[in-house]
Structures are given as C-alpha cells and as structure tokens.
Design a protein around this nucleic acid. Structure first.
Length: 565
RNA sequence: GCGCGGGUAGUCUAGUGGUAGGACAACGGCCUUCCGAGCCGUUAGCCCGGGUUCGAAUCCCGGCCCGCGCACCA
C-alpha cells in the first residue's frame, strides 16, 4: 500500500468496507476524517453549481425501474455476451462478431454463443482461440416488490432521475431556458475489476449538473468570468494547448462557449478545493471513447500516483436523453420557446369549401373539413380518413391559399451539457496533492497541507504540560471554540512535539497551546501547520482570529507577534 | 475475467514443519517550560475454509482481499 493510503487508513479517513468478513473490492467506508472532507467538498460544489448558477438541487431514488435504463440505453444489451481472445486479449460483443464472421443470428446467451464458437471453431482475427463467453453489463440488477417482482437496477449515474422528472422541472422554471438541475448522490457500477484504491469503486458518490439549454444557444451569460483563464487542454488528437478559454472557443478547440464555461468553472472549483493547477488538465474524449449519449466530452484529469485520473466529465449530451425518454414514455419532453418577436411565415393552407362539401357529404362534411385543415399542402386530389373511412376529394371541395401567419415560438427539445463530478476521486486527489513531507529540527515531518477550510478538524487545543491547571484551562478554551462552531479537538497525551506531529499528519491547520504565560496574561499561542510558527494572541480574541484564519489563507503573523519558545 | 507476485498486532516487519518475536503507534503512570525525548507498565496478530501431518504462520487445494500487467470502465 502506498504511504498516503497507509496514512489515510491508519488515521481514519477511509478504509475498505466489510473488513471483518474479508472485504469486498470496490467498496469503501468513509471514516470520521474522510467523511468530513467529502461533506465539505460537496458544500463547495453546491456553492459553485447550485447557488451560483441558474440551478436547483433535487434528490431521486437510487433504484430505477427497468424502463428508465432501456430508454437511456444503459440496459441495451444487458443480455449481451462478450468473448475474449486468449492470445491477443481482444474482447468482442459475441452476437455481433458471430453475425459478422459467420452470418449467423445467435441468441445472445453464454451457452448458445459457446455452442457456436465450438461448433464452427470460431477464431479471433489474430488466429487465437476464444475463452468461455461472459456477460458484460455493469449495472446491479434487483427486484422491486415480493414474488417475481419488477425488475429494477441500481442507477449507474444520478442524471437519469433528472431527465425522468424533466416536465416537472421545466415547469418549476416556468419553461424558461437555460436552467440547470443538480443531484448529489450515490451511483453504482458492477465493475469487473475494481482497482487502484478508491479510484474505481462499485458504489460511488457523484455530483452532477444537467444544464438544459436551447440547441441553438450553447452560451452562458457569465462566460466572461472565465474567458481569460488559461487552461491546459489536450484535444482528441492528443495535441496539448495552453490557451485562454476564449481562444479555445474561437479556434474551435472547444466546440462551444457553454462547454468552455463549464470547463472554466470546474477548474476554478477544483483549484479552490485544493487540486494543484500544475497537476490538472482537460482532455477531450477521442471519437471511439465517448459514451453512447455524448456528442462531445471533456474530462478534467488530475495527476496522481496512479497517473492521470479522470475526476470530472463534462459532456454535451445533446438531446439524446430527452429524445429517448420522449420516444419510450410517449410524453412530450419539449419546451415551447417563444421568439423575441413573432415572425410572419408564409405558407400554403388548405381551405375547405363547405358550400360544396355540405350537400355531398351531409353530416360528415364538418369532420372532413377539419381533416382538410390539418393538411400542410394538397395536390389536385387528396385523401382523408374520417371515422375509419377513406374519402377521396377532388379539387372543387377545397382551395389552396397562400396565407401569412404569425408564429410566436417553437417547440424544442433542449440540449443538455453535463458536468459530472466523481466526489470520491476528487476527495482522494485533494488528500494526495496535500500529502507532503518536510524537515523540522532535523527530523522528517509528515504534513497534510489541505486548504484550511476543507480540513476535517479546524483546531486542536493542547495543554503544554499534562498538569491539572493546564488541562483545565485548555478544556475551557475547547468549550469556548466549540460553542462558536469551530470543530475543535483536545489532546493532552504525550509530549507537545508528538501532539503537533499527530495533528500535522491529518491536516489540522492550527494548534492552540496553553503554556505558562497563559496564566500570567491570558494569552495562548496559535501554531500554523504549514510553517510550524507560532503567534501569541489574547484568549478573548481567539475565536475571531481563528475564524478569520480558517476562512482565508492569511498568515498567522498578521494576527500577533511571532512567539519563540 | 486472465496472468504474475503478495496477505503475521492499528502500522511496518522477523519467523521454510516443533512455545509467534521486534519496532513504531495507541493506552495508563512517572517525569516534563514548545516540535515524534526518557523510564515503568498495558492492550493487541498468523485473511477464510478444507487437506496432508503426531504437529501447519510455514506444505497442498479452493475462496476472499491487496499490488502489477492485459482486458473492461457505457
């Protein structure tokens, strides 16, 4: 295990789930410290992608009924079977491969595919033999209700819950595009081989924003905020660019402004959380790498000990999901978009001649007229269907007129741009990027240089000596800090140096020490995790000073004289 | 899912068939005027199951987990 993972497990950030039963790959527990970091990260995400966006946050079930994933495309081929070559290792979708090579339609079951492979002695393109076929759908299946139950799946992304509820959400926004809907929650993928610590999990935390826009207006009014940010981009041809987002859009590296906006916003978010700028890049998916729903996709990637790791995916899903759910549910998921000015449109209109229709068709004449009016255009003879009866009408029963009409808007299926964040991976990246060593008084020190605001514990209060009067005073200060909402720990075990190291290792930004001078002038020292320097401040000012320090990256030296013991 | 290598206290590690040992950490005490000090004491371990054997941490089989490579990652 890497040094950082060893520390994270030992000190209570996270560990493997189900340990006492032997563990299970792909699941982790967040311990006291890791949970605090992830929660704080979630709140920062809310600040960026909900509060400071035209967005709302919802919460939908983690189990979805089968229909959802048939429509979304996730279940497609859940009975599909894959075959893997034992010499070159390539994997094929079995039914497709058999159709292509043998022109045989085969039931996609492991048994049938294997029969065919054996019977026809089917080989890989490289000449190698195939191993026994296996299923490759990665969704967890479940049954809803007793008995046979209804088939459901654990969601592989939070996004579908948003698309399903689109009509309600659009109504909430009074059908005004653009708008965003966010969801933070768990998602599940039954990975074949979870690896790399927390990087690939079977149950993981996502924060997703679905930002719905007019297909012709993939822009954002606040793009100017990030337009001049210089970002590292790797395009789908593996070409690296260090350019401003404005240039990237102008040069066509990024397809449109809205994607560029979210790349910029994502970058600012990650930097504020503590991802190192020099270890961050945005990489465009290659054409064969994109998910079935995406037309363009940029990943934020962070450099870690595992290499470059995808931590955010920013995809243009176009109208894929809403169209599919329209098609499968029969509900109209389009939005009426009014034009700024009604436009006048000339078109041909079929006008029934009731004076002729009436005498001939009697009581059916009215219905025939209604059908005629629905027609877009007409030749010299048309056929309409009334009450199941086909009726041919010649030109004398209607006129074709060129008319000018006012059109006030159009119905569009919105497109959606989706920034999707893997919170577990980001949390890990923050911890790894913060993990550091330096030398203090000739001895190596491990220190977790988290941004102050995201540290799981704000302050540790330490009596210099484990004597009763020191402990009593320190505990009074602990109570004072806790009452003011500062997450405070107390520790009187071991020498002062040992305790400083303990809190350095888990990233506590400040230690407050009660020493002899405290009893003379009611002052304590504040020690800075990153520099190990100390300043002396009055106990009365401690809360306000600490709050200011915790909400900024200001130096402790602004708040008191440097104290040298 | 395939191949290779691993799994001994909280962590790191010694132990190739015969009483499971150490270091660090943690906890209690003594000491102690600021950066992993010292002394005394305490807690705590052979991944799980089966087999071979008088006897298994050790050898064999299966499983689980971890690392690396391949594949997968919608």
């Amino acid at each position: 295990m890497s040094e950082i993972m060893e520390m994270l497990v030992r000190r209570g950030f996270l560990w493997q789930s189900f340990e006492i039963y032997g563990g299970m790959a792909g699941f982790i527990d967040y311990g006291p410290l890791g949970n605090a970091v992830r929660r704080k990260l979630e709140n920062l995400w809310r600040k960026y992608f909900v509060i400071n966006e035209r967005s709302v946050e919802i919460d939908t079930p983690t189990i979805g009924v089968e229909e959802v994933f048939i429509a979304s495309g996730h279940a497609e081929g859940f009975t599909d079977v894959a075959i893997e070559c034992e010499s070159c290792g390539r994997v094929f979708r079995a039914d497709h491969y058999i159709k292509e090579k043998l022109n045989i339609e085969v039931d996609p079951t492991i048994e049938r595919v294997w029969d065919v492979v054996v019977e026809f002695n089917l080989k890989c393109e490289c000449g190698g033999n195939f191993k026994k076929p296996f299923h490759f759908n990665l969704m967890f299946e479940t049954k809803i209700g007793p008995g046979k139950g209804k088939k459901g799946y654990l969601r592989p992304e939070t996004a579908q819950g948003i698309f399903i509820a689109f009509k309600r959400l659009s109504n909430y926004f009074r059908d005004k595009l653009p708008f965003g809907v966010a969801q933070i929650g768990r998602a599940y993928r039954n990975e074949i081989s979870p690896r790399q610590g927390v990087i690939r999990l079977r149950e993981f935390n996502q924060a997703e924003l679905e930002f719905f826009c007019h297909p012709g207006e993939k822009k954002h009014p606040e793009f100017y905020k990030y337009a001049n940010d210089v970002v590292t981009l790797v395009d789908k041809f593996d070409k690296e660019h260090k350019v401003t987002l404005k240039e990237a859009v102008e040069k066509g590296i990024i397809a449109h402004e809205l994607l560029a906006y979210f790349i910029g916003k994502t970058r600012r978010f990650l930097l504020e959380a503590g991802v190192k700028d020099e270890k961050l890049r945005f990489r465009q998916h290659k054409d064969d790498e994109r998910a079935h729903y995406a037309v363009d996709c940029w990943d934020a990637e962070a450099l870690t000990s595992y290499g470059w790791v995808e931590i955010v995916g920013i995809a243009d899903r176009s109208d894929y999901d809403l169209s599919r759910h329209t098609q499968f549910s029969g509900e109209d998921l389009s939005v009426f978009v009014p034009f700024k000015e009604p436009i006048k449109v000339k078109r041909k209109k079929v006008v029934p001649n009731l004076a002729k229709l009436g005498p001939v068709y009697k009581d059916k004449a009215k219905k025939i007229a209604e059908e005629l009016e629905k027609l877009e255009n007409a030749e010299d003879e048309v056929e309409v269907v009334v009450d199941g009866e086909k009726i041919k009408l010649s030109r004398e029963f209607y006129e074709i007129r060129e008319v000018e009409e006012e059109v006030h808007g159009e119905r569009v299926i919105p497109h959606v741009v989706e920034p999707s964040f893997g919170l577990d991976r980001i949390t890990y990246v923050l911890l790894e990027h913060a993990f550091d060593k330096d030398v203090v008084d000739g001895e190596e020190r491990r220190v977790l240089r988290l941004k102050r605001w995201i540290a799981p514990i704000d302050v540790a209060v330490l009596p210099l000596l484990s004597r009763e009067e020191f402990q009593k005073k320190a505990l009074e200060i602990v109570e004072m800090l806790r009452e003011s909402g500062i997450y405070t720990e107390y520790d009187d075990s071991g020498s002062i140096g040992r305790r400083y190291r303990r809190f350095d290792e888990i990233g506590v930004p400040f230690c407050v020490t009660v020493d002899h001078q405290t009893f003379e002038d009611n002052t304590v020292t504040i020690r800075d995790r990153d520099t190990t320097k100390q300043v002396r401040v009055k106990v009365e000012e401690l809360v306000s000073v600490l709050k200011e320090l915790l909400n900024s990256e200001r130096s402790i030296e602004e708040f008191g004289e440097i104290f040298k013991a």
